[in-house]
Amino acid sequence: MDKPSSQHLKPPSSAIHHHHHHHHHQQRVSSSSSATPRPPLTVHASATVADTVVFQGTHPISIGAGTVIHPRAKLYSYDGPLSIGEGCIIGEKSSIGASPTPTSTTTTPTTPTTTSGSSEAPSIVKTRISNAVTIAPLAIVFPGAYIHSAAIVESSATIHRGASVGSHSKICGGCHVPPNGNIPDWTVVWGVGSNSGQRRRKRTTGKIVPSAVVAAGSVTPQQQGVEGRLIEDARLVVLQRERETLVHMIGGSATARRR
């Protein structure tokens, strides 16, 4: 079982020299200076990171236990530290954090505040992704966003700077959460477009008495006591299974390629 060794982090361009510091459960790599700054990485041993994941930036990036990061995901920490919790799935070609703007690509790794490509966020902003979050392919999470646990950011959705996505919420495909926007817990943002066409709905968590029009007459009252939360529990179970499968696929292929 060489899983811990196979779970080495794999910065994308292999031409760069790395220092590997092996701890008990965490491996810390501080990259040497190069054209693209390497962020200090803290990856839990049980996390699965594909070979072609892009890590760039100057601030530390931490990845929690059991998190799976698909190939070609881009994680930038120019604007501030980036922390990804446990049991997350970061989809292919998704982008977390912001790459520096082309004008400021000449970065000096020692002064992170000046390297941030975005002029509007010169201070360090922390980007947080909590546990069991799903970031679908091509989703974009800008710096300063806080995605709470068990949230879903669907493909091509955009979480703008400073936005907060509540736990168990879902940002459907292509939807935008505006800068500093706040999505409460258990909310689904769906629809088309950025603002006007977008709608929100609250997911049910508790028991719902059938409303008047619905009139679930044939259902006995004790039968009705199924909480909406059950659906979310089921989804998280499925998410867990998906992660297990992904570990085999991404981790396995990564191992095979290394040898």
Binding site: K170, T204, P210, S211, V214, Q223, E227, G228
Partner: peptide
């Protein structure tokens, strides 16, 4: 018990108390 569930907006018939 069975429910109808929407894969997009995560609506289920539990939202209206039906299974």
């Amino acid at each position: 018990p069975w429910v109808l569930s929407c894969g997009y907006c995560m609506w289920t018939t539990l939202d209206i108390g039906i299974k």
